[in-house]
Amino acid sequence: MTRVYLLRAVWGGLAAFVSMAGILPLAAAQSLAVETAKATPPTLCGWLDNPTPGNVDFIDREGSWMVGMQGGHQAVGSVPTFPSARWVRTGHGSAGYGCVCMKARIDREDRKILEFVQARSMPLAACRKDPAIKGLEPFNPLK
Rank of each mutant, 00 (worst) to 15 (best):
L32E: 00
K112C: 07
L142Y: 08
T36R: 15
P83W: 09
A126S: 10
R86D: 02
V117M: 08
S19G: 11
M20K: 11
F139K: 09
V117P: 08
S19M: 03
D110G: 05
G13W: 11
Q118N: 09
A95W: 08
Q70T: 06
D57K: 15
Q70C: 01
R86F: 10
W87Q: 08
R86N: 13
F139V: 06
T2C: 01
P138K: 00
V10N: 14
C45S: 15
G13K: 12
G98V: 05
S19R: 06
A21W: 08
A27C: 01
A125G: 06
F17W: 14
I133E: 01
G13T: 09
T52A: 10
A29M: 02
L124N: 04
E35N: 14
V56S: 04
G46V: 01
L6M: 07
A126Y: 12
N50V: 12
A95H: 04
K103H: 13
A125S: 15
V117G: 09
E62L: 01
Y5V: 13
D49T: 09
M66L: 14
P83Q: 10
R108Q: 11
W47L: 05
P51V: 03
V10T: 13
I133Y: 05
C45L: 07
M122R: 14
G77R: 00
R108S: 12
P25G: 11
M122E: 15
V76A: 10
D60H: 07
C99V: 07
K103F: 00
I106T: 13
F82V: 02
V100E: 15
D49H: 14
A28Y: 09
V56N: 00
R128F: 07
F139Q: 07
A39C: 03
F58M: 09
R105I: 01
K103N: 13
V117Q: 15
G63D: 15
L14E: 02
D107S: 11
T36Y: 08
L6D: 13
V117E: 13
G91Y: 02
C127W: 10
F82Q: 05
A33H: 02
S121K: 08
P25W: 09
V10G: 10
